[in-house]
Amino acid sequence: MTAEKAVRLLVHGRVQGVGYRAWLASEARRRSLRGWVRNRRDGTVEAEIEGEAGAVVQMIAACRQGPPAASVGDIEVSEVAGSGDVGFEVRPTV
């Protein structure tokens, strides 16, 4: 059994209107991670990612770079309880 990890990310910078959510969802699915991503009205992108611990760590590192048009300033990472989500979805803005 591999160790599981679940985190919530709050991504700051130029991360809306640059394809960040679609990119993050695609990268998460490629790594067999579960969870969701959404824009927030304050201009940040919020995501919850869970799965194999090593893949989650790699995903956080990838999020610091983001897609080509993005400019990531900072990422707040907090550990959360796993939600048991199946798949990875893009949620509406909150």
Rank of each mutant, 00 (worst) to 15 (best):
K5R: 15
R40M: 11
L9F: 14
R30G: 15
S71Y: 09
S71N: 14
A53N: 05
A3P: 09
R34H: 14
A62Q: 05
A53R: 03
E52L: 01
R14G: 10
A3K: 12
S71C: 13
R64Q: 07
R38K: 08
S83E: 12
V18R: 01
G35Y: 00
S71K: 13
E76V: 15
V90Q: 05
G66K: 01
A62G: 11
S78A: 12
S71M: 09
V90C: 05
E46K: 00
S71P: 08
D42I: 04
E52G: 07
V57M: 13
E46A: 02
A81M: 11
G35N: 01
N39Q: 01
L33V: 07
E46V: 00
I49K: 02
M1T: 08
V37I: 01
D74Y: 10
A47D: 02
G73R: 12
A6H: 03
G35P: 00
V90L: 06
W23D: 09
M59T: 05
G13E: 06
W23N: 06
P68Q: 01
A69L: 10
E76M: 14
H12F: 12
A25E: 11
A25N: 09
S78N: 09
E48V: 15
R40C: 12
R29L: 11
E89Q: 13
R64C: 09
G87K: 02
